[in-house]
Design a protein around this nucleic acid. Structure first.
Length: 573
RNA sequence: UGGGGAAUUGUGUAAAGGUAGCACGAAUGGCUCUGAACCAUUUAGUUGGGGUUCGAAUCCCUGUUCCCCAGCCA
């Protein structure tokens, strides 16, 4: 069915879209364009610190910023905010570039580094010192904390606050030259120790850190703080709208103060609510813990909310972008249901993924009246949602596998699948009727006997009789053996992150978040499937080839997401 | 208890003084060679209390609740 303009996935503001609803940031941009505030330019940026892997929360910011730039024919920068050498690594820079390029579907040709501006930052700091707006402070970290005051008590001024410009200039130069040890001195902005906003109580602009920086090496032992660096980075890059998350709201006065004191180009900082997703954790610290303590297989474990995890899980960049479009942007701290993410993937893959038959938990079925040794090829539709995908041929023979769940010794009410005496359709093949079954010593059904109706070849009956159920199958002698990994949510609790819960978040890890099933039977056309291929295993879900562990002779498939299952839902009630 | 933000059906998100809409979920029915998809219908909301107004989610007053801030992290 054709998509209407308003629910299509095209995120461009197209001329014939009836009423494109703007989020509050787009409204600000349109206002600015109306008044000519930024000469009608739109220039955004995504400024991660390269100290970890990107996750779905970052995806919201990336989609927002790159999406805005795209829609307004503006520019988007990927900028590394690498101002803290002790936490950052090249490995993270590389993974972030890979993830951003994958997510946006675009080669990033505008990649910048805060560390490239260190010289400029330094010169600007000298400028501020000359204006009497910054001073070198000898207080220790502890002393700074003690003199900062409390929410109700103003801070006290540093005894070094009124050093002369000359002395400050001299000291600052010597800090840069490496004359002082770590932590012995800082450069502070001279603002207002009585401000109700802590960020304005003479914030530290520079600290001394004798550490190797992943890009500048040992060229510097003086590193700028976030507040000092960030506005300058934005200003240097001529960013128009500096979009960040809510917790930076009270940094905005300082962002503005620095740029105003310097009298330089001044972007507009705008804050939005970061993404909250249930049944997972998003904090870098917790994610790191899951990796380090081997609760998951790594940053790209398909259960992780990281971009690389989602990618390995089978998510497409389009589905993540669509998810971000659907959840919107606002200033309210909301928690989005993961189902929303899953549905974005289902909706896309339903339209694009080719169908295949695969049996996860095989149960042997012998078609007793089918000729021994015979094989016939049957036509199967590749994707009913896309006729252009055509058909393929699937081999059928006397012994096949069906899903264990598709046979019941005693069928419950409203059960449409195979059961003694019942007739079902083997998809694209024949109607079969269960005549008998065999149990092992433990009482488990190990083999089912059926007879088929040769007149129903292809799956429809000339006499027009209906069957209630259609089940999938794989010919035993033609089956491709595979390992399948079934993923479920990582946590059993909606909000494992809940700060008011004293129990450790790992307590809520879902013991069934990964089920590895071996000996799965796939239809032979799946042979040769490679990384990046995504299929719908009919009646089960969407699967992809695992990028890490799969090989041609030992295929491994990941379940990205199951199909909706109203039968299971009803049965669960 | 200082300051800064926020609150609209179950979950998100629109409505800029004039019909509270959309998406997802849920429910019901239809269709079906996937118990999927698809189609149709339904469900359910303005944080409390005052006020202004012909008319308030929107403006005013006053409560409540939630989030953020005292790193030489970002």
């Amino acid at each position: 069915m054709a998509k209407t303009p308003e629910n299509g996935i095209d995120e461009n503001a197209s001329a014939d879209a009836p009423e494109k609803r703007l989020n509050f940031i787009e409204q600000i941009i349109e206002d600015d364009n109306r008044t000519g505030k930024f000469e009608n330019r739109v220039h955004t940026r995504f400024p991660p610190e390269p100290n970890g892997y990107l996750h779905i929360g970052h995806a919201k910011s990336i989609c927002l910023n790159s999406g805005i730039a795209k829609n307004y024919r503006g520019t988007f920068n990927l900028r590394f905010d690498d101002t803290n050498p002790t936490k950052e690594e090249t490995e993270y820079v590389e993974s972030i570039i890979e993830d951003v390029e994958w997510l946006t579907g675009m080669k990033q040709d505008r990649i910048f580094f805060a560390s490239d501006y260190f010289g400029q930052f330094y010169d600007d700091a000298v400028d501020l010192i000359k204006k009497g707006k910054a001073y070198v402070c000898d207080l220790t970290g502890e002393q700074i904390r003690e003199t900062r005051g409390t929410p109700t008590v103003p801070g006290t001024e540093s005894p070094y606050r009124d050093r002369s410009v000359e002395e400050n200039l001299d000291l600052f130069a010597r800090m840069k030259a490496g004359e002082f040890p770590d932590g012995s001195k800082t450069l502070r902005a001279k603002i207002d120790m009585a401000s109700p906003n802590f960020n304005m109580r003479d914030p530290v602009m520079y600290r001394i850190v004798h550490a190797e920086h992943h890009r500048t090496g040992d060229a510097w032992c003086l590193y700028p703080m976030y507040d000092w660096a960030h506005g300058l980075e934005d200003s240097i890059e001529r960013i128009t709208h500096s979009i960040c998350t809510l917790e930076f709201e009270h940094h905005r006065p300082l962002y503005d103060w620095f740029l105003d004191q310097l009298g330089v180009y001044h972007p507009q900082q705008i804050e939005f609510a970061r993404l909250g997703l249930n049944y997972t954790v998003m904090s870098k610290r917790k994610l790191l813990q899951l990796v380090k303590e081997n609760y998951v297989g790594g940053w790209d474990d398909p259960r992780m909310p990281t971009i690389c995890g989602l990618r390995r899980r089978g998510y497409t960049p389009e589905s993540i972008r669509e998810f971000c479009r659907r959840i919107g942007v606002a200033k309210f701290n909301s928690t989005i249901d993961v189902v929303q993410l899953e549905n974005a993937l289902r909706d896309e893959l339903n339209k694009t993924a080719q169908r295949r038959m695969a049996v996860i938990r095989p149960l042997k079925v012998v078609v007793t009246n089918y000729p021994e040794g015979q094989t016939e090829m049957l036509d199967a539709v590749n994707n009913p949602e896309n006729e252009a995908d055509g058909t393929r041929q699937v081999p059928f023979s006397k012994v096949i596998y069906i899903e264990r769940d598709d046979f019941f010794e005693e069928a419950p009410k409203k059960y449409f699948r195979l059961a003694p005496g019942k007739e079902v359709r083997l998809r694209y093949a024949y109607y079969v009727t269960c005549t008998d079954f065999v149990k092992d010593a433990a009482g488990d059904v190990v083999e089912v006997h059926c007879t088929y109706d040769p007149a129903t070849r292809g799956g429809s009956s000339p006499d027009g009789r209906k069957v209630q159920g259609t089940i999938h199958w794989v010919s035993a002698e033609h089956a491709l053996d595979a390992e399948v990994r079934l993923y479920d949510r990582l946590f059993t609790k909606e909000n494992p992150d809940d700060p008011s819960d004293p129990v450790d978040f790992k307590t809520y890890l879902n013991p069934d978040s990964l089920e590895i099933v071996t000996g799965c039977k796939l239809e032979p056309s799946l042979r040769g499937a490679t990384t990046g291929d995504r299929y719908q295993f009919e009646r089960i879900g969407y699967f992809c080839v695992d990028s890490r562990d799969s090989s041609p002779d030992r295929p491994v498939f990941n379940r990205a997401v199951s199909l909706r299952d109203s039968w299971a839902k009803q049965a669960g009630k």
